[in-house]
């Protein structure tokens, strides 16, 4: 089986965003437009954070709502066919935890591919890349 990304101890998150920057570097450059993982504070930084990333649903709502069939299921998670995608952003709305990110530059969804690069760059062991 493949590996899935998992948030194992969110209490250790310090909001450094190294996970998000690592994710964006998959495409070679820097910045955050292409990051599939996000960190948000829970009502003030002192209250801690949530790490928002694809949970690799059994029955993915993002796939179900896509009007052009641009999202397909793979062994762990989904893949977006950027050529087929029309940029309607319905997948963004469909994900209950908000794990479908939006690349405002390309106007396409960005969804985690469970490669585990972010976990390699998490200095505080918040994330793990585990066998499913």
């Amino acid at each position: 089986m493949g590996k899935r990304l998992r948030v194992v101890d969110v209490e250790r998150c310090v909001d450094c965003l190294l996970c998000a920057f690592a994710c964006a570097r998959r495409f070679g450059g820097g910045g955050l437009a292409k990051s599939a993982i996000a960190v948000r504070s829970v009502g003030g930084m002192e209250r801690g954070f949530v790490v928002v990333v694809c949970r690799a649903c059994e029955d993915p709502p993002c796939l179900a709502v896509c009007p052009v069939g641009a999202i397909r299921k793979v062994e762990v998670g989904v893949r977006v066919d950027a050529d087929r995608c029309i940029g309607c952003s319905m997948c963004v709305e469909a994900c209950a935890i908000g794990a479908v990110q939006w690349d405002a530059v390309e106007r396409k969804p960005v969804i985690c591919v469970h490669c585990g690069l972010c976990a390699q760059y998490c200095p505080h062991s918040v994330l793990a890349h585990e066998e499913v």
Partner: peptide, 26 residues
């Protein structure tokens, strides 16, 4: 509020330099 992309001059060198610096930093 910002969420942009940052292109780099040499992608391979960028990845290598980043990895080395990160490892030393932690």
């Amino acid at each position: 509020a910002g969420n942009g992309d940052l292109p780099v001059a040499d992608r391979g060198a960028y990845q290598r330099t980043y990895r080395d610096l990160y490892t030393r930093a932690v």
